[in-house]
């Protein structure tokens, strides 16, 4: 079994949104600004023209962090949210009753409602599409113009992601919450 994770060389992100479209086309996600499995976050610039703070305008690609200690899984009353053997956090639409506890519990705001199934949806690391076909990349990783993303098996010491996490400094989002995300931001 693998334990999938993703490392993000986020300083290379130019907010071009190739990943967002690749995700929607690959996984058949609904249209709409609130129907995103993945997105790129950035804040409004600080300062006054022309004295602006360049660092205030950084781009942060984000999505479900596939936490090892996922608050969404903990609060789900029907066990619709579960961990796969590969460490991916999934939602079983058959069990989901749209109580939305998980949406409130997720510190990363990574969940939204799919209006077709009327259940909660989120990133699956392309498990039903690409991984199921035997591919080893996610749609977002494969298409990225500036090659921000490295997807792979954290349990395999020889994988590229393991190597990168051994050799480069990185951080997790809201690490203080103890959710143990499997997304790592490389500095």
């Amino acid at each position: 079994m693998a334990r999938y994770g993703m490392a993000l060389d986020y300083k290379s992100c130019i907010n071009c949104k190739a990943c967002e479209v690749a995700c929607k086309e690959e996984n058949g996600i609904l249209m709409g600004a609130d129907k995103h499995r993945i997105w790129v976050g950035n804040g409004e610039i600080e300062g006054q023209y022309p004295l602006l703070d360049i660092t205030s305008n950084a781009f942060y690609p984000s999505q479900c962090q596939h936490c090892d200690e996922a608050p969404c899984e903990e609060v789900c009353p029907t066990h619709a949210t579960y961990y796969t053997e590969d460490g991916i956090v999934r939602v079983d639409p058959e069990k989901c009753i749209l109580c939305s506890y998980c949406m409130n519990a997720c510190p990363y705001d990574a969940r939204y409602v799919d209006d077709r199934t009327v259940t909660v949806d989120k990133c699956t690391f392309c498990a039903d599409t690409r991984l199921a076909r035997g591919e080893t990349t996610t749609a977002c990783q494969n298409t990225c113009p500036t090659k921000v993303r490295i997807f792979g098996d954290l349990d395999d010491p020889n994988s590229e992601i393991s190597e990168v996490l051994r050799t480069r400094e990185h951080f997790s989002l809201k690490a203080n919450l103890g959710t143990k995300p499997k997304l790592f931001y490389l500095t």
């Binding site: 071009c16 949104k17 479209v21 690749a22 086309e25 494969n142 298409t143 990225c144 090659k147």
Partner: peptide, 25 residues
């Protein structure tokens, strides 16, 4: 046509497809 993926063989585009490329469908 269900998906447009980057073709890694091209030295010019080096295995990338941007938002528009993905939206060609």
């Amino acid at each position: 046509v269900t998906k447009l993926n980057p073709n890694p063989l091209f030295p010019k585009s080096k295995n990338m497809l941007c938002a528009r490329g993905n939206a060609g469908i």
